[in-house]
Simulated scan of single mutants.
Amino acid sequence: MMKKFVTRLGLTAGVAALALGGVSGTAQATPGAAYVGPGYPNNPHAVWCVQHLMNDVSRQYGQPTVDEDGVWGPKTFAAVKTFQNRFWATSSNGADGIVGPTTGEYLLSYGDAYYGRGNYCFWYLPSPDATFLPVAGTRLD
């Protein structure tokens, strides 16, 4: 009888510890998240995040969107270059169509807050510093 009680108590404590550990961590982008673009591994989840977050920003500005199919192709590549030209590219750091830390930061910051910022897409997109993200929904112009 006592053995069953101790076993149940141990299992309950273990489940509680896992639950608390899962919710107490801070939300940060994965430091090693791969770049997304031509010549990169292009995880389908990462590509979907690029497409979804970019589409959210594009809709805010009345711009065309791309299919959210998780497949990197010429339309997604062109849309990323357009996004970069609109928001941060200059003559000294031109748009390359690759989602690296800067583009990832903008997408996570200004795209759909439900998937961006500290949520799902943080695990798939590169970002230089998760603590520097501006408030979601803020327009860039």
Rank of each mutant, 00 (worst) to 15 (best):
Y61A: 15
H52Q: 10
D112I: 02
K81Y: 01
G73H: 06
P134D: 06
P74M: 14
E105Q: 11
T82A: 13
F87K: 00
A46P: 06
A16R: 08
F83Q: 01
D67R: 08
G70D: 08
P38Y: 13
E105Y: 11
G14S: 11
T90K: 10
Y110G: 03
L125H: 03
A78H: 05
G37C: 06
L107W: 01
V99M: 03
V57N: 01
L125P: 02
V50P: 01
Q63K: 09
V80Q: 05
Q60L: 15
A46G: 13
G22Y: 06
A78W: 00
Q60Y: 11
N119V: 03
N42F: 11
A13L: 15
N119D: 13
R59G: 05
F132N: 14
A95Q: 02
G97F: 01
V15C: 13
N85D: 15
H45I: 06
D112V: 01
E105H: 15
N119C: 07
Y110F: 15
F87D: 03
T30Q: 12
T7Y: 10
W88P: 03
Y106H: 10
G22T: 05
V135S: 14
M2G: 08
A13S: 12
L125V: 07
Y114E: 15
M2P: 04
E68P: 06
G62H: 04
T12M: 15
K75M: 12
W48N: 04
Q84A: 00
S58Q: 13
N85L: 10
N42K: 10
P64Q: 13
Q84T: 00
S127R: 04
E105V: 00
V47T: 04
V23W: 09
T90D: 09
T76A: 11
A130H: 14
P126L: 09
E105M: 14
L20K: 04
F87Y: 11
G97E: 05
Y124K: 03
V47L: 07
Y106Q: 03
D129E: 11
A89T: 01
V50A: 07
